[in-house]
Structure formats: structure tokens, C-alpha cells
């Protein structure tokens, strides 16, 4: 990607929009002028590819199995995540909110697309869509139903509109019937959607 000459396949893709062409042009100019290195973008692309919801799932599984860790995760999320070897962006801090029988959190960013990328990878398209950004704050239960999530009668919904330097990760409820399971097995039950709050963790 650092050198777009190396992408003969590009012509077989959908025709590039004007903005796409201009982005490629900007990159070529920045490299040609020595403002950025020829391989820099490629190395970031590789870093981005290494992040996925599997990282967040490990954090959740640890919190499910270690109450002291869970306490630290909720009260000082950054340190607790660093403890497991994950790196957070210097620009954004992290907060973790816990779903319980009584309260269900659902995260949205109405202004743009703030998302805990460090632990979940890039946000899915729907998270960035106008429909989700518009509706999640004003009809969260309807949105949850579209995702197939029906809440208990007694649960209240607390929408989190992520606007600023904090990125929010939902700690989903640990499903029943998982008593003897290992941390690795538990992590397999933790979906991306459950950590955004549009879903719940899978049951075994």
C-alpha cells in the first residue's frame, strides 16, 4: 500500500470515487515530498489488522473469573487493560461499564464513531451508520430488538453516548451454565456486539 504502483488489482475494483482518488493522491504527495516514509502507512495497516474483538473478549473473561481484576477494570480501566499487555491510544482513555440484571448499557457515538478500537478493532459499519447514531439514543430498546436482544422486564437501559476522550467497553453479564469453564472457553462466548451492548454474551 505504501506504493500504489504495486496495486494492479485496483483497476478491477469498483471505480474509485473522487474522494478516494484524492486520498491516494495525498498519500503519494506526502511520500514524494518525504513528509512521511514510504512504508509508514503499510505498517499502520498491519497494526490495525492485528486488533480484533478477541482482545476485548480476553479482558472480559478475566473479569468474569477474577473478582479483584474486575474491580480494577471498572475503577481504573486503563491500568487494568495495560496489566494484560494491551496498549491504548495516547489520545483516548478507556472506561468499562458493567451490565447487570438491573441495568443494560448500550454504547453509541452520535457525533462521529468513537469506539474502543484498541480492544475491539475498527468499528463495524453499522456502528458508524446514520441509522444507529440517530436511533440508539432515542429508541434503544427498539434498536436492541433489531439485534435480537430482548431485555428482562426489570432491566433499565442506560445509553452511553461516547463523545470525548473516553472510549467505552461494556462488560457483559456472564451467562449461566458456565461455572466450570476456563478463561479461554469463556472468552469464546464474548462477542463484539456484547461489548458494545447491542447483544449479550453467548450461552454455551
Amino acid at each position: 500500500m505504501s506504493d500504489d504502483h504495486s496495486h494492479p488489482d485496483l483497476k478491477h475494483h469498483v471505480p474509485l470515487s473522487e474522494r478516494a482518488k484524492r486520498a491516494i493522491a495525498i498519500h503519494r504527495l506526502l511520500v514524494a515530498k518525504g513528509i512521511i516514509g514510504p512504508a509508514e502507512v503499510e505498517s499502520v495497516i498491519d497494526q490495525v489488522r492485528t486488533r480484533s474483538p478477541a482482545d476485548g473478549a480476553k479482558v472480559v473473561a478475566r473479569a468474569w473469573t477474577d473478582p479483584a481484576y474486575k474491580g480494577r477494570l471498572l475503577s481504573d480501566s486503563r491500568s487494568a487493560v495495560l496489566e494484560l499487555g494491551y496498549r491504548l491510544s495516547r489520545d483516548a482513555d478507556l472506561a468499562v461499564v458493567e451490565n447487570t440484571a438491573g441495568v443494560h448499557h448500550l454504547v453509541v457515538c452520535t457525533l462521529c464513531s468513537c469506539y474502543p478500537t484498541a480492544l475491539l478493532g475498527p468499528p463495524p459499519d453499522w456502528y458508524k451508520s446514520f441509522a444507529y447514531r440517530q436511533r440508539a439514543v432515542v429508541e434503544p430498546r427498539a434498536v436492541l430488538r433489531e439485534f435480537g436482544t430482548e431485555l428482562d422486564e426489570c432491566a433499565r437501559v442506560r445509553v452511553v453516548d461516547s463523545t470525548a476522550d473516553l472510549r467505552y467497553l461494556v462488560l457483559p453479564r456472564r451467562p449461566g451454565g458456565t461455572d466450570g469453564m476456563s478463561e479461554v472457553e469463556l472468552a469464546g462466548l464474548v462477542t463484539r456486539d456484547s461489548m458494545v451492548g447491542v447483544g449479550e454474551a453467548k450461552t454455551p
Binding site: 500500500m1 496495486h7 488489482d9 485496483l10 475494483h13 469498483v14 474509485l16 478516494a20 486520498a23 491516494i24 495525498i26 498519500h27 506526502l30 512521511i36 509508514e40 502507512v41 503499510e42 499502520v44 495497516i45 497494526q47 490495525v48 475498527p122 463495524p124 459499519d125 453499522w126 451508520s129 446514520f130 441509522a131 444507529y132 436511533r135 434498536v143 433489531e146 439485534f147
Partner: peptide, 23 residues
């Protein structure tokens, strides 16, 4: 509008833009 939960594979230029901002 319902929420469209389908996702698209990023085109090369989208990877480029995302990473360029990082750089």
C-alpha cells in the same frame, strides 16, 4: 431506517485512509 448490519470488506484505499490518519 432499519439498522443495516451487513458489513463491507474495506477497499485498499479505505485501509490507506484509515492508516494515513494514524501516521
Amino acid at each position: 431506517e432499519p439498522i443495516d448490519r451487513s458489513s463491507h470488506e474495506w477497499a485498499d484505499w479505505e485501509h490507506l485512509v484509515n492508516a494515513l490518519v494514524g501516521v
